[in-house]
Each structure stands twice: as structure tokens, then as C-alpha cells.
Amino acid sequence: MNFQTRKWVKPEDLNPNGTLFGGRLLEWIDEEAALYTIVQLENRHIVTKFMSEINFINAPVQGDIIELGIEAIGFGNSSITLRCEVRNKLTHQEILSIEKIVMVNLGADGKPAPHGKTKVEYVKDRLR
């Protein structure tokens, strides 16, 4: 799994318990999943369709640096299925896991559209 994005847990990210607000973390994950999907499918018009059970394992606190990891685990006709892990950058302690996030490719009409992809592609390989 590639951990591409790092976030610094700041005071405005905290809940009343002094730990990272779960909604903020889900916002970061949704954005990371969208960016990953846009790059993979080469289309800016995508939506999040589904997230499986969200397993909060440990709670980050102010000052922690966390990293978000996303990997593709499947390709449908108009969708891509991802897996996500979040961990503490310094300790590698697991913070959260989501086994399945389904992102859907949209056409110009805003409806699901085939994307023609069957495997992970890397930008460096497309440029050759």
C-alpha cells in the first residue's frame, strides 16, 4: 500500500475529547480516494458510491502526523474499488482501516460510464 498523503493533526481537527474528529479523518480519506481515482481513471468526474465498515482502531491526538494509504483492489465496468489504511507516520501505529471504498466514473451526462481500465496504472508509465 502506498502512503502518499500526510496530515498534521491541529487544534481545529480535534473533537471535545482532544482526539482527531472522525468526520475530519473521513473527509481526508474521501478526498484521497477521489484523487487516487481521478489519476487512475484519468477523469475528474467521479463520485464516492460506497464505504464499507469504518474501523477506528486508535485515536490520534494534537501534533500527531498521520499518513493515508490507498490501494486499488478491483476494477468494475464503471467503478474502482479501493482499500484504505491510516497510520501514525512516526510510530506506524494503525489508526483506521476501511476494507472497501467504491468510486464511480461519470460521463458528461453525470451518469456512470465505462472507464476501460482493468489494472493499476502509474503516471510514469503513461508518459513513455
Rank of each mutant, 00 (worst) to 15 (best):
E85V: 05
R44V: 13
P60G: 05
I70D: 01
K89N: 10
E85D: 13
G107C: 09
N55H: 15
L106Y: 04
G63T: 09
K89T: 13
A108C: 01
V86Q: 02
N105I: 03
M51F: 13
V104R: 02
I80F: 02
K89F: 14
V61H: 12
H45Y: 14
F75K: 08
S79H: 05
V47K: 03
I80S: 01
L106P: 01
E85R: 12
N58G: 01
L90R: 12
Q93P: 00
Q62Y: 09
T48W: 03
R83H: 15
E71Q: 11
L96Y: 07
I73L: 06
T91Q: 04
S97D: 11
F50Q: 11
G69M: 11
N55K: 15
V86M: 05
K49F: 11
N88V: 08
L96W: 07
N105V: 02
G69I: 12
N55A: 11
L68F: 03
L82V: 08
D109R: 08
D109E: 14
N55S: 13
R44K: 15
T81E: 06
C84G: 12
G74M: 09
F75M: 10
T81G: 00
I73E: 13
P60E: 05
N105P: 03
C84V: 15
F56I: 14
I54A: 11
E67H: 07
G74R: 13
N105H: 14
I54L: 10
P60N: 05
E94G: 06
S78P: 07
V102Q: 02
V104Q: 04
V47S: 07
V86G: 02
C84L: 12
T81R: 05
L68G: 00
G69S: 11
N43R: 10
V61M: 12
M103L: 06
K100V: 00
D109Q: 13
T48K: 09
E99F: 02
S78D: 12
L106H: 04
P60A: 04
M51K: 05
F75V: 10
N55R: 14
T91A: 05
Q62P: 00
V61L: 07
M103W: 02
G69F: 10
E53N: 13
E53P: 00
L106N: 04
N77R: 15
L90A: 11
H92Y: 09
R87V: 12
L90W: 09
S52D: 15
Q93R: 11
R83G: 06
A59W: 04
S79D: 05
I98H: 10
I57C: 03
R83L: 12
D109M: 09
V86A: 08
N77G: 13
K100P: 00
K49H: 12
Q93C: 01
P60Q: 04
R83D: 07
R87K: 15
I80G: 01
N55F: 10
I98S: 09
K49L: 14
I98K: 10
E99W: 00
V102T: 15
I73W: 04
N105F: 04
I54Y: 05
E85N: 14
A72K: 09
K89V: 12
C84S: 15
L68N: 01
S52H: 07
L90T: 13
F50C: 01
L82R: 01
L90P: 00
F50I: 02
E71F: 00
G63L: 08
M103A: 03
I54H: 04
K49S: 14
N58M: 03
N77K: 15
N88S: 11
